[in-house]
């Protein structure tokens, strides 16, 4: 199933992120299931990495804990398989080295077999992605590259031409983490992206409540929430994830 399905509901989609293996492999599956039951339209499963340079403290700590607990690359496929088949597309968000180490084609194959829809690659730009472009074609996976407020028009055009599924717009210059206010740069970035592609555009980095979801949904096709959900899981467990998902979902039309 491609992520396109999530964009046929006549309203913007809610994308929720949680890392595999946090607090445990079983705990993450449970939390992701709760997120699905509470209304996310796309699930983003993170693969913990030792050097997460685009992540803020919340996701760093969760990654460290998952790795300290012994999480393995293969656990991400297991997690995807556990929540697949419920009508909600699942993409994996991962730094590049674990994929390269696993074998790019093998990773794509195992992700497709687990029922995953594609990859979000925060430190892989299309310029370096030759192997992934081939593997994602071969295994029919979506590839979601990032665009940023600092991207030139040429780069936005080049990057989106390599995207499939949707485009990930990072709303602020900075690392992941919930913020009081969302960025003023985001609407401009989204309109620049929409000028060169028909793909849906998701906006992430910093969203933590329904009001922010509503604000972003006014101009974007998807609202991406990560750190706030990880915090909710760390502080209040699966129930916290469910409650926050419902709150976030309230920012979107029924």
């Amino acid at each position: 199933m491609t992520t396109a399905k999530a964009f046929t509901k006549g309203r913007p989609a809610l994308v929720g992120y949680l890392p595999t293996g946090f607090p445990t492999v079983a705990g993450a599956k449970e939390a992701i299931a709760a997120m699905v039951a509470s209304g996310v339209d796309i699930v983003e499963v993170g693969l913990p990495y030792s050097d997460p340079v685009i992540d803020g403290p919340v996701i760093q700590r969760a990654s460290e804990q998952a790795l300290a607990n012994g999480v393995r690359t293969r656990d991400v496929f297991d997690t995807v398989a556990a929540v697949a088949g419920q009508g909600v597309p699942i993409v994996v968000m991962t730094y590049w080295n674990p994929v390269e180490r696993y074998g790019v084609d093998a990773f794509a194959r195992d992700l497709a077999n687990a029922g995953g829809s594609g990859l979000i690659t925060p430190d892989l730009i299309p310029d370096e992605a030759g192997e992934w472009l081939a593997a994602s074609d071969e295994h029919d996976l979506d590839r979601i590259f990032l665009v940023s407020p600092s991207s030139t028009d040429d780069r936005i055009a080049m990057t989106t031409s390599h995207c499939r599924g949707f485009v990930y717009a990072t709303a602020v210059m900075g690392v992941t983490g919930a913020r009081e206010s969302t960025s003023t740069a985001a609407p401009t970035l989204v309109s620049r992206v929409k000028g060169v592609t028909n793909l849906p555009v998701g906006v992430g980095l910093g969203v933590r409540n329904g009001a922010q979801v509503r604000e972003i949904a006014a101009y974007a096709d998807a609202v991406i929430v990560g750190s706030a959900l990880v915090s909710a899981l760390a502080e209040s467990g699966t129930a916290g994830v469910a409650a926050l998902t419902q709150e976030l979902r309230s920012g979107l039309p029924a």
């Binding site: 340079v53 730009i125 310029d127 370096e128 590259f145 990032l146 990057t159 990072t170």
Partner: peptide, 9 residues
């Protein structure tokens, strides 16, 4: 270059 797009510029 294996970095976030935000740094490319």
């Amino acid at each position: 270059r294996f970095v976030p797009e935000a740094l490319i510029a």
